[in-house]
Every structure is written in structure tokens, then in C-alpha cells.
Nucleic acid binder design. Structure first.
Lengths: 236, 236
DNA sequence: CGGCCTATGTGCGTTAGCCCACGGACGCAC
DNA sequence: GTGCGTCCGTGGGCTAACGCACATAGGCCG
């Protein structure tokens, strides 16, 4: 999954990978929504009302242990679907779904997804494989968060985000990033400063720009490549 | 899921939760196997030959980043199945499956599981829900590993293991534990020493005994309760 | 009983990341 | 412009955990 070019229409990859027949059937059930940066789509314990198929938006899945202990465990962009619990037969969320990249998405009611999952079309098969990709992503990130220094993890995170948006710039405060990486805000300042000094990114007041993707890939640990490969497998 | 009593026959919970009809059909396909401590059932990149339904054995799922960077991301005991990738339509493993607790398990060929998954019986539904439990376990552990001190994580790990075995004693070196928790061996020595000083466990040369379960629960972070609740939901 | 292997205990210097506190800086609103 | 809220940078002290090196200690085997 490489970054999309500007002006190219972006569509969710799961939906795009459906056979025409299935897509036709689902289209009337899908409702386009604009996701706003910072929106919380669901909280642990909530009953899922909808599932979301991001186009150029990004939804972060956060585990909340205590109030201060927030950690992103998964990132969902156009390669996936948020609200997987519904598909897995559990209607309640265990994580927080936070809009981390504003943009558009298609959504479907939980009831529709359940019906579709039971119907045996192409979607459930795809979602199974997507579930595996997400499992891999979460596992690899877990190990990464355990072993790798903040700088490398930040680079990985920026690359994963870059893959899911359109263009090279996005909105992002360090405070926010600290929750994604599970570190202090000051830790992000240092790490981001280092990347900026290397001319890999430019960063200013909640706005970030990727300057040197190849450089970021070098700065990141190989966890990025592992996770990416898993998603590339998914819809090809 | 509470610890099983001695002399009580232990059966894998997923299999036990199947309606009689499904269980009857599957029984001839299931082969009992004795799992040996330290056995590696699969490595990243391996094609899954079998899936495993542990009875009183435990299989650890490890993520390996580098050789020295091993981390348990999931633990599979009688509440689950190892080899979930097969069910998810990906026949290749992404993790290492290591026998962490010797004991018996039932296994089934990957081909049989695929057939069964396509057949629409009760098993696929159960496996979907189990997948959700595992996702929750991995996510919660990820956050736990990020935020909580070694002592609490060790207590959590011991409790999770205790829940999956028969009796109060098991085999376990500190070297081994260090890979489970993703810390140094010396770190385990300290943490285990602390628990032993509190009379919660006794520990000697690769052999550990749970002395005070309630005490361990107090010493653990609440991640233990979160994960346990998820599994208790699964088959009731 | 002596030798050796595995497992555990311990100590010490180093470091990454924590917590706390504050200073500066940009940017929008009025 | 003035003001104020948000965001970013920096410094100092602290702690958990690391890496390395080595000391013990039980267990098996000859």
C-alpha cells in the first residue's frame, strides 16, 4: 500500500476488492460520512451502531488502561474496517475508536454487516483475512513498542499514516502523538526534533509534513516493513 | 475461567461448547497429541499443518523481531485454538507457537478446519468470537507491557498460566520467562524474588508453585481481570 | 567425590524515558 | 495591536530496566 496521489479518487480497499455483484448489493447500504479529526466513534463498552470503511480517513484503535495510559494498538485506514467486533459476533467495543486523520469514509449499520456476514458473500472472506492482518499489525506493534526506541517507533507510525492519507501533510499535535506511541509529550518533542534535524519531516504547531520518505524508512525499525507486507498481501 | 481441579478431566472449551451434533462429526477428525515443554509447533513463515485445541497444555504465541527480541503476544490454553491463521484464510503463520505448558491437546489438520469453517456449523461462529477474545488479549497485553512494571506483569502472566493448567505447579525457567515478558533474565530474578518474599509463589530451579492466588491477583495489574473477563464471556 | 552444565543470585555503571516545572512562541479573536 | 489559549521546547532530578560480568548453587554423571 503506497501513498495515494493527489486528485486520485481514493476508495476503501476492502470495498474495492469486492466482486461487482457484491459491491452492487452493498452500495445502497453504504452511507458516506465525513470524519472529523478528534472525533470518537466508539468507546470501550459501547454498542457498535456502525462499522466504518475509511477512504482517506484514519481511525485509531486505542487501548485505555488508566486515564493516563493510552496506547494505540491498531490503525485503520483504507485497507480496513473499524468495528471488527461486530463481524466477530461481539457487538460491544473493547477499544476506543478515534479519528486520527480527517477524511471521508463509508459506513454501514452493524445490523447490515451482520446480515452480510451471515449471507456468505465475498465480504466475510475478505474480513477474515483482514482480521488476520490486523492481528499481525497489533502483535508486531506490541513487540515494537516493547523493544524499540521512540525515534524508530515514531518513524514507523508516520510511515503507516502516510500510507493511508492523500498527500504528504497532515494535522497532528505532539500531545496526540504521545498517546499514539504511549510515551510522554516531551518524548515526542525530542523524537520529532531529531527527525526534523535530519530533514525527514517538518513540524510546526499541529501540522506535519513528510519530506523524505526513504529517509524515514531508514530511520524506522523493520516492523514497518513487516506490517506493510501483511497488508499488501491482503487485497492483491 | 478458574483453575481446574486435579483428577477432573479437562477438555478444550471450544470443543466442549459445540453442540453435540457438531462435536460428533468432528470427533473422528481430532487426534489427541501430547505436547512437550519447549516444542515449537510452528515458526513464522511455516505453512500450518495442524491446528491445536489444548486441553491442559499451553501454547505461547511469540513475536520475534530480532533474535534477541522475543515477546509473547498471546497465550492459548483450553479456552482457545492455536493456528487461527488457518481459520482466517491465511495458511501461513506469522508467529512462533511454543509449548509453554506440557500436556495434552487435540489437533486437526488444517484442511479439515478449512472444510469445517466453510461448512457453516457451530465451530466457525465460536472461532469468530474466540478471535475477538484473542484480539482483546493481545491489545490489552500490549498496553500492559508498555505501561506496567515487571512485577505486575509477572503476576498477571502467572495467573493466566495458572488458569490454564491443572494443579498449582509447573515447569518454568527464568530464562524462558524473560522471553514471555520481553525483559532480561535478571529482571525476572528480581521480580520473582519479590513475589517469593511475599510468599505468593515458591520458585526453584525451573519449577514454580503458586502459593497464594489471591495475593497474586492483588500484585497484578488489572489487565489480568480485563483479559479474563473477555474469555469468561466466550463460552458461557 | 569431583567435574560440569544449567539455573539462579548479585552488583555496578549506563541509559531511556519518566515526572515536574517553566519559558517561549505562534495564531486567532476581539 | 492586546490578549489568551494552544502548542512546542528545554532543563533537572529520578527510576526502571538494560548490559555485562561474575559469584553461587543445585543436579546429574562419571
Amino acid at each position: 500500500m503506497s501513498p495515494a496521489k493527489k486528485d486520485e479518487p481514493v476508495m476503501n480497499r476492502l470495498l474495492a476488492a469486492l466482486p461487482k455483484k457484491d459491491r452492487q448489493r452493498l452500495l445502497p447500504e453504504l452511507e458516506p460520512v465525513a470524519l472529523i479529526f478528534g472525533d470518537i466513534l466508539f468507546e470501550p463498552g459501547d454498542r457498535h451502531q456502525h462499522v466504518y470503511f475509511p477512504d482517506d480517513s484514519i481511525i485509531s484503535l486505542l487501548a485505555a488502561v488508566e486515564d493516563r495510559e493510552l496506547l494505540e494498538v491498531g490503525m485503520v485506514g483504507r485497507e480496513g474496517m473499524a468495528g471488527l467486533a461486530v463481524f466477530l459476533g461481539v457487538n460491544e467495543s473493547r477499544s476506543r475508536g478515534l479519528v486520527q486523520g480527517a477524511g471521508s469514509a463509508m459506513r454501514m449499520t452493524a445490523a447490515t454487516l451482520r446480515r452480510e456476514a451471515a449471507g456468505g458473500g465475498a465480504l466475510p472472506k475478505l474480513l477474515l483475512r483482514y482480521t488476520h492482518s490486523l492481528l499481525t499489525q497489533i502483535s508486531q506493534s506490541a513487540a515494537c513498542n516493547r523493544f524499540h526506541p521512540v525515534n524508530a517507533r515514531l518513524a514507523r507510525w508516520l510511515l503507516m499514516t502516510h500510507d493511508r492519507i492523500v498527500g504528504d501533510e497532515f494535522r497532528l499535535t505532539q500531545e496526540f502523538l504521545s498517546h499514539m506511541l504511549g510515551v510522554r509529550r516531551e518524548g515526542v518533542t525530542l523524537a520529532a526534533g531529531a527527525l526534523q534535524k535530519q530533514q525527514l519531516i517538518s513540524y510546526s504547531r499541529g501540522h506535519i509534513k513528510i519530506l523524505d520518505r526513504a529517509g524515514l524508512e531508514a530511520a524506522s525499525c523493520k516492523c514497518y516493513a513487516v506490517i506493510k507486507a501483511e497488508y499488501d498481501n491482503l487485497t492483491e
